[in-house]
Design a protein around this nucleic acid. Sequence first.
RNA 1: UGGGAUAUGGUGUAAUGGUAACACAACAGGUUUUGGUUCUGUUUUUCCUGGUUCGAAUCCGGGUAUCCCAACCA
Length: 623
Amino acid sequence: MNDKDLAKDTALPLEGERGGGLRTSASFIEQKVINDLAEGKNGGRLQTRFPPEPNGYLHIGHAKAIAIDFGLAKKYGGVCNLRFDDTNPQKEDTEYMDAIEQDIRWLGFEWGHIYNASDYFQELWDFAVWLIKQGRAYVDEQSSEEIAKQKGTTTSPGTNSPFRDRPVEENLRLFEFMNSGQCEPGTLVLRAKIDMAHPNMLFRDPLIYRVLNLPHIRTGNKWNAYPMYDFTHGQSDYLEGVTHSWCTLEFVEHRPLYDLFVGWMREWFESLAKAPQTPEGASMVQKLIDGGYVSPSGDEEGAYQGPRQTEFNKLNLNYTLMSKRNLLALVQNGFVSGWDDPRMPTICAFRRRGYSPESIINFINKIGYTTYDALNDFALLESAVREDLNSRATRVSAVVNPVKLVITNYPEGQVEELEAVNNPERPEEGTHTIEFSRELWIERDDFQPVAEKKFMRLAPGKEVRLKNAYIIKCNEEGDHPYDVDAEGNVTCIYATYDPETRSGQPGADRKIKGKTLHWLSCDHCLPAEVRMYERLWQVENPRDELARLQGEGLTNVEAMRQMMNPDSLHILQNCYVEKFVQSLPALTYLQFQRIGYFNIDTDSTPDHLVFNKTVGLKDNFKK
RNA sequence: UGGGAUAUGGUGUAAUGGUAACACAACAGGUUUUGGUUCUGUUUUUCCUGGUUCGAAUCCGGGUAUCCCAACCA
């Protein structure tokens, strides 16, 4: 057990209020924690773990696991460790480890320790050797096809391998050979001897070790045979002293196997403790006993009971594809610009898109943890981000689809500095100035040559207010209200301003029918690139649709292409923003007034400003 | 033709045998120098079917529907 500190990660007080604060109803998982702590189980310890495989970037589904693994540990005075589930060197990379750590921190959580499943490769190996000696594991030399055939089906039992009763000595020799580097991958596997007729397919002599002959990101060339998930996860939890092991619903059927292997491992410890055969084994067991993790009898008051797995529903979002495998395919096929393409459901993409960590956690808490396979509405996530950004985003003016407006009675060359509130929700954040002059940019959508009935913006003969500035009136029909080009597009609008209505002056109180428009002074604003995003998928449930299309014979890539929204990205190059934003750092939360929430992209420079649309403002104006 | 899970408005989630509620969505209106925010109001719910009970979303029987399981992935 190397010298890593396996000691007690936490000890909790049992009395006092836990999780005070907001009185939201506890999920069944949280309820179980409350009960366990009240009963003093595991000596009142709460220890969890977040166990990602470092084979991809974290997505918002992981945020749900993170929020409960770290969140409940934090709330109830326990500890959550980060454990990389690195048992398959074929797919894993340190690049992903770094990104995973960064994303967890960004979400606002801190781990007690970082562990790796590979830390336990030696213990798992020794345990497997013990199982072989016990006659509970054997080396099979059939091909994967033969093994699959013998497995039977969900409705019919399997048949025993001809190698099932191989003598112990031969098993030990072959298991050693599996790890020698000389063994051809795929030729030998170690299987647990359980029951080939078991109704749970996982119990039909599961493979617990396979030969890969690949170097590992952590252990290098030390190992050539690697343990499988089912033979690693529960034991790792157990060795670390995890009390509550939470995972998603597809692992429900793994739980009996998880419990079986943990139980066998406990037996192994007990046998070692009784008759220590090796100095290493004895000292390891002593450490476990000293740390209070393992009790030879297992039933003393307050002793560590071993980990308990509980499953909750994974996050499904409509119009969103979540699986890492498919996200990797999107990246590898160039359907998106990378893992942090703002259309991706990854944590890093949400960050770049302008979502705050608080909004993501709030969303997770709203949808809750149950055992129902729900399909959540993306609109709930959007409402969470709007709610959070409304109180924190700095208001600025931006014109994303500009058309020129000339104030004909405003003196040429005159410039006024007007005051703009940074955030009406937080007056303490102050104001900044914005220049006003004779020639302005306004939004093309804010003018109609012939206003439709409910249109309350600018039109010939109509009055509107310019935010923070003046009331203006568009020239009457017949008095040259606007210019058009050869195609009939409006190129310039003409209006007059009422000098008595400057914001802050008494005359500004005058009520008018028109709305308040945002604007930018042509000579005092900056060009900008604005990236507008729509949903990546056209179908509400891409997971099911992908499976359906593949069932019809399409390849994964073909199916994806067919399901994708061709209009998911619009890059607008002719936009303008006020100068104020030039000095702001990347990832600043902004609201482009009357348009939506935007974020300064990581690609943005003072010479080439780039913004990402986070989410639009709620729009009650429908045509 | 097996095993394991699940079912409450359009979408999620609560109600732990005692008046079915909350959020989002939708709709209507008030306030508003953002058609935002905020405030007020409205619409819509216990899968079906028997039973137990004074009383059932909850407990029991029988159906139905959906999800997961036959990777040398996790």
